[in-house]
């Protein structure tokens, strides 16, 4: 266990706790402490990732422990970036707990017996191409996951706010949550970004496949699930553009999409397959 990772975990935990307090008390005071906490966690986290990269000699996203940590890192980065546009106070209340959970999962997962599986080490080491395509492939996909987490969060906020409006019982959520249109916008923007990254990530994976054994596609469980994810989000975009879907239906789709992402990430490991990591 790394001191910096623990520090990041604690910063994210405090951030999650603080943002919930801000939400519940409907405080109007500035969120700069929250941003400070997240930034502190983010810096510690980044340094830790950089250090293990240098120590190991390859980009540390080869086992679930590292991937979970990297997802948390990507969500923080994504949140800090879109906060410039959507300074919605409720957003961190929903996002920071997710960040914390990924970080905690990462720290709780056992250290793998082998830091890197021989198969993967072989694949990376095979050529200089393998050395940079892996970080690219994984980074694109993880950033798409981070965007999809925000799509999901926007969808959940929409559903909660919509329920408040329809039921006409205005609790603390009503006042703290942003307008329906804003939830929808956050969700849609992140959906678009996530979809582009997911597509690029999958293409990079296929190119790597092809470079290794001349086949783009192996019907590996992970590949199939990734395709399912891709189709899910494609349908979401399609319904939005072609059928003018918005609001509640797309919000539910964003929840569904998030579940599919989780399945792709976790589920695929329980099937034997060609995919060597993650």
């Amino acid at each position: 266990m790394d001191f910096l990772l623990i520090l990041a975990l604690l910063a994210y935990l405090c951030g999650a706790f603080y943002s919930v307090v801000l939400f519940v008390t409907r405080s109007e005071s500035s969120d700069r402490y929250l941003i400070g906490l997240l930034a502190l966690g983010f810096v510690a986290h980044s340094i830790s990732i950089l250090m293990s990269w240098m120590r190991l000699g390859y980009f540390p996203v080869v086992n679930p422990k590292e991937v979970a940590s990297f997802i948390a890192w990507a969500i923080v980065l994504y949140y800090l970036v879109i906060r410039a546009r959507y300074s919605v106070r409720a957003l961190p209340t929903f996002v920071t707990p997710v960040i914390f959970v990924f970080m905690l999962v990462s720290l709780l997962l056992p250290e793998p017996v082998q830091a890197i599986s021989p198969a993967l080490e072989g694949a990376i080491g095979a050529s200089s191409f393998g050395r940079w395509i892996l970080p690219l492939h994984v980074t694109l996909l993880i950033f798409s996951y981070a965007a999809f987490v925000l799509t999901f969060v926007g969808g959940v906020m929409y559903l909660v706010q919509e329920r408040e409006l329809k039921a006409k019982t205005f609790g603390s959520a009503f006042y703290r949550l942003p307008a329906l249109n804003t939830c929808d916008e956050i969700s849609y923007l992140s959906l678009t970004i996530g979809f582009v990254l997911l597509t690029l990530g999958m293409i990079s994976g296929m190119i790597w496949n092809n470079q290794r054994d001349g086949r783009f596609w192996h019907y590996d469980p992970k590949e199939v699930l990734a395709l399912v994810t891709w189709i899910t989000y494609l349908l979401m975009i399609h319904y939005r553009l072609a059928a003018g879907w918005r609001g509640r239906r797309t919000a539910w789709l964003s929840v569904l999409g998030f579940l599919v992402v989780l399945c792709t990430w976790i589920g695929a490991r329980y099937f034997p397959g060609y995919h060597v990591f993650g």
Binding site: L165, F174, P178, A179, L180, N181, T182
Partner: peptide, 8 residues
């Protein structure tokens, strides 16, 4: 207030 919560 309601309009703001729908349309921002």
């Amino acid at each position: 207030e309601l309009a703001r919560k729908v349309f921002d």
